[in-house]
């Protein structure tokens, strides 16, 4: 399953909840969730830990828009909107953690 997260983990529990409940699959960080994929933020450890169970992607245009393209955590895969579409097709279902 593809898990789509769109909120900063520092203000909202969506990513935390996803990591608590979901067991495996792909995680795509979009909109304000891209902050989770940057080095030095409080959530970095949790993302690194999550990469053992999930493959983690980030929507690159959202990262660039926020001035953090140079702070991407190694091992998180950047994708464009086409890559986002691809992820929804390679996974058999998806969930937006709103």
């Amino acid at each position: 399953m593809l898990h789509i997260i769109n909120k900063s983990p520092l203000t909202n529990s969506a990513l935390d909840s996803c990591l608590r409940v979901a067991q495996a699959g792909d995680i795509l960080l979009i909109e304000d969730a891209v902050y989770a994929a940057t080095t030095g933020n409080l959530f970095e450890g949790k993302i690194r830990e999550a990469m053992g169970r999930f493959k983690v992607y980030v929507l690159q245009p959202d990262l660039e828009a926020r001035g953090l393209a140079d702070r991407l955590i190694a091992g998180v895969t950047p994708v464009d909107y086409g890559g986002f579409v691809e992820l929804t097709t390679t996974n058999k279902n998806c969930q937006s953690w709103l």
Binding site: N6, I30, E31, D32, P61, D80, Y81, G82, F84, V85, E86
Partner: peptide, 16 residues
């Protein structure tokens, strides 16, 4: 931002 993301997703899907 969700309207923008949704639109850009649609566009990319159609392009593919």
């Amino acid at each position: 931002q969700s309207s923008d993301t949704a639109y850009l997703f649609c566009k990319a899907a159609i392009e593919k």
